Amino acid sequence: MIEVFKTNVQKVEQSQMIVEKLLKHFPNSAINFDLEDCDKILRIHSLSISNRKIIAILKANGFYCEVLA
């Protein structure tokens, strides 16, 4: 399962911190950001994904996040 999110993460350092936090909740997942995209895309490839949890983790760290449809 692959899920794509729109975020407001701007810096590589921020994206690395978010990836580390997400991997604690979703181990064995492939998680990456495309900060060159205007929507600052977050992609997560995992067997099970909780959109609500992912959005909550980013929000708890001061970032905006929504599912990109």
Rank of each mutant, 00 (worst) to 15 (best):
F26D: 00
L23S: 02
L23T: 03
A60V: 04
K6I: 09
D34W: 03
L22S: 11
V12S: 01
H25I: 04
L22G: 13
I57C: 14
K53W: 01
I2L: 14
E20C: 12
L35S: 11
K21Q: 08
I55E: 10
H25P: 01
L42T: 06
Q14S: 08
D39P: 05
L42S: 09
A30I: 04
S50P: 00
S48G: 03
D34R: 13
K21I: 07
I49D: 00
I49F: 01
L23R: 14
K59C: 05
C38Y: 03
K11C: 02
A60F: 03
K21F: 03
C65H: 11
C65I: 06
I41S: 14
Q16A: 09
S46D: 10
E66K: 15
I49A: 09
L68T: 10
N28E: 08
K40N: 10
T7R: 14
N51I: 08
H45R: 10
I49H: 00
L68H: 15
N32M: 09
G62M: 01
L22H: 05
D37T: 04
C38G: 05
R52F: 10
F63N: 06
I57T: 08
K24G: 01
N61E: 04
E13H: 06
I57H: 11
N61F: 08
K53A: 15
M17H: 06
F5I: 12
I49E: 00
S15E: 11
K6R: 15
T7M: 12
H25T: 06
S50N: 12
S29T: 06
